[in-house]
Design a protein around this nucleic acid. Structure first.
Lengths: 245, 245
DNA sequence: TCAAACATTTTATCATATAATTCGCCGCGC
DNA sequence: GCGCGGCGAATTATATGATAAAATGTTTGA
């Protein structure tokens, strides 16, 4: 196993093991390989392997006790808000349902963040929001990257909210956005309408209109959510019902 | 350093270092002790220390590179949604502002979870919500623990929402509730009114009335938030303005 | 039948050695 | 004087082997 992805051996093992866990390669009930076995598997020393296991333990994926071995934790203990964990899940264990569930989180958070931002945004943060909208407009003319400018807008709003918990979602939303376009082939040509939908959120925030900012942001994400729900329904029809996992 | 708290040496060092970091003992800019120094400090071997550092790295508090040493990450990289990190911050670096900010997160999440629950709750989950309300009523009569029953209610709603991200907040909310009562001396005698406020949320969920469930849950948390904001204002008056940190 | 002693397996901890990485210094050439 | 390349040192990264502790299963003794 060459340290192809991360920079060092440990982080690439963390990544590999992490992906193996979230994809269900090691079930929460079934036995996890013992240290020595994993060492052989990866051709790494015990130190490195133990450090990798500790990192996954810190993310809630594993737990270990003497004589009992290392075990995969039940899924509800996983740290879903850890950027690594969410990324692994979206990239490697994609399910439309997971993306929908995360979007439900966004539709919960972001309108609130927009409302807070309309009161709390500093001049610099306001400028950043304006700049992001400008970038989106430019992207509409083909002069900037649509995805990056979109991300920049949402991040700017989160930052302007002044709530550090909201800011935490930054990486998660970035991952989700990057990922969802990679699958849905949206952003073919940025519809101007979408840019204007963003712009009215920005305008409401800059005008200090919390209620409008919240409403418009919610509408924005609801639209994306509706698209996913429609796709989900479409995908269910041809085959059968039963949307578990 | 006896492994007083956690079960083993590593976890107690993780805890100790984690607390030292969130309390600002090691600033994000200033130098962090090198491995050998930390080993001496804790009287532990390098392996143990490195594993502890790796766990903190996984939680976003540290980063390390050869020759450059280990460094504290800027606060916005910390994994605030990690139960350990939030607990350390609330227990050891308490600020009313942080509690308020987290409550803003709750007021964002929980009404939404209640709305989802009103449609998605399974029979078992409904029973759990009912049971929690019964416990709260019992607590009002002094026959059960007010805090535990309150926690049980909120957790039951999160579970019933069917969204794993919401369920993640379980431990966080538990921590925040346990903590906030320890400081505010609320729950002296559970006012029946509060129990009824909870009950009408439960009733709305059980009746499948999403809008009402959302509204009542929001009102419930808003009340707590208002108390904190009032306390914050009260605390600011006597001294001076300037609520940073 | 039950319980205490024992053996075994697995992680936890320790100790030491070597490699890789990066920064700063020094000297060389121009 | 100034840049550039190598050299050395500091620090984490990795490897290895040994010992300790914990938890489980088994055996033995009454």
């Amino acid at each position: 196993m060459p340290p192809s992805h991360g920079h060092n051996l440990t982080s690439s093992i963390v990544r590999d093991l992490g992906i193996a866990i979230v994809t269900g390669e090691y079930a929460p009930g079934k036995p996890f390989p013992v240290e020595s076995e994993l060492c052989r598997h990866y051709g790494a020393s015990r130190s490195v392997l133990r450090e990798a296991v500790k990192m996954l333990t810190a993310k809630g994926l594993l737990s270990a006790r003497p004589r009992q071995g290392t075990r995969v934790e039940p899924e509800e203990r996983w740290n879903l808000f850890d950027p690594d964990v969410l990324r692994w899940m979206l990239e490697r264990k994609f399910s439309l349902q997971l993306l929908i569930q995360f979007t439900q989180v966004r539709i919960t958070f972001e309108p609130c963040a927009a409302a807070l931002a309309s009161h709390a945004a500093s001049p610099e943060q306001r400028a950043k929001i304006t700049a992001a909208i400008d970038r989106m407009l430019a992207a509409g003319r083909g002069e900037d990257d649509p995805l990056e400018s979109d991300i920049a807008f949402h991040v700017a709003v989160l930052q302007a909210s002044g709530n550090p918990f909201f800011l935490q979602l930054r990486e998660l939303i970035e991952t989700a956005l990057r990922f969802s376009i990679r699958r849905t082939n949206a952003y073919k040509g940025v519809p101007l309408a979408s840019v204007l939908d963003h712009k009215r959120v920005a305008d409401a925030i800059l005008a200090g209109n919390a209620a409008a900012a919240e409403r418009f942001m919610r509408a924005l994400i609801q639209e994306a959510l509706d698209l996913m729900l429609a796709e989900q329904k479409k995908a269910q029809k041809p085959r059968r019902a039963g949307g578990r996992k």
